[in-house]
Amino acid sequence: MAKKFIITDLDGTLLDTPGKLSKKYIEQLNKWIDQGLAFTIATGRDLKKTMKAINGLTLKYPVILTNGAILAELATETYLKITHIDDNISKHLVQKGQEFQLFPIVFAAFDPKKQQMHFNKGVWGPQKEITFLSSDKVYPLLELQCVSIQYHAKKEQLDPLLKWVKEKYGNQVNIIYIEDVAYSTSGIAGEWFWLEINSHEAGKDKMLKHLLSVINVKIEDVIAIGDNHNDTDMLKIASQGIAVANAVDSVKKIADLIIPSNHEGGVFQYIEEHLDEFI
């Protein structure tokens, strides 16, 4: 019987404290990984933010970043696969966003000549004043390979742009539209959402398939764990899709199993209860 391979989302799923994984769980995971646990991560975070969140965790497998737009090796900070949006589409998206008075808050681009990733970011957070990226931060990167364009605003502001993107480029890009839970739980007025636009080749499910081909693991041996809409396709293709108790209803509906919430260490409880299957 083949050993199971576990892949989990970070925020809202694995992370048990705001923005990071607690020391006790890092130590526990490292112990299990040393004993043979096949484990990795699929997150919406970029490489630097991922490393900050799980500082001290020693992963032996590549990680999926930027909601499946990137595959990387954390230990060496090496990018193994990078997807990008068609040049004409990315330029049109930015121009159309400005017509709706929307400006990116994250813009990721890859320079193929220098083999260098650029993540230009504005400022956001429940306790911070939002600062979007100015044109001089975005337009130079449009000359490179656009990996991800991300907007952060209230739902009523984002919906018109979302509608246009779906109608114009729905089958040529990967669209992620999720509520910012940090804002809603902080009592800030309005429905705040993230609109993320990546290549049509991106997605946690698509990058997972690529990862499995690289490490020679079969999809029937994969257990995927998540909490939000951007995890849905990954959970669907895995042999077992698991949702934490704090997951959104649509994820719980398609999950094969629901485990305790991230704040209760649900992922760790699940692994410990089934350790014989994983090690």
Rank of each mutant, 00 (worst) to 15 (best):
Y139M: 01
Y183M: 14
G203Q: 06
N216P: 03
D159E: 05
D159N: 02
T131D: 07
Y169L: 08
A182T: 14
K166V: 02
V165R: 02
T131F: 09
H210W: 15
V138Q: 03
S213A: 11
G190M: 13
L195M: 13
S148L: 14
S186Q: 14
V217L: 07
S213D: 14
S148C: 10
A189M: 12
G190P: 11
L208D: 08
F132Q: 07
F193T: 07
V123I: 09
K218Q: 11
E129H: 03
L211N: 09
L161D: 03
E220Y: 03
I149P: 02
K128P: 04
K163R: 01
V181A: 12
Y151Q: 01
F193K: 14
K121M: 09
S148F: 11
A182Y: 15
L142R: 00
G187M: 05
H152E: 03
A189E: 15
I149H: 03
Q145K: 06
V214T: 14
L208N: 10
V217P: 05
G190F: 14
S148I: 10
N198M: 11
H210I: 09
L141H: 02
K155H: 04
P126C: 01
Y151M: 04
I188M: 09
C146W: 01
N216G: 02
K121Y: 08
Y183T: 09
S184I: 11
V217G: 06
D136Q: 02
I175D: 10
L133H: 01
V222S: 05
W124N: 05
V138G: 04
E156M: 01
L133D: 01
L141V: 04
V181H: 12
V165H: 03
V214N: 09
H200F: 12
Y177A: 03
I178E: 14
L133G: 00
D159V: 07
L142Y: 01
A153D: 07
V222E: 05
V165I: 08
D136L: 00
A153T: 00
E201M: 10
A202Q: 11
E167Y: 09
I175T: 10
V214R: 15
G190I: 13
D180Q: 13
E191A: 14
M207C: 12
K137E: 08
V217I: 15
Q150N: 13
L141F: 04
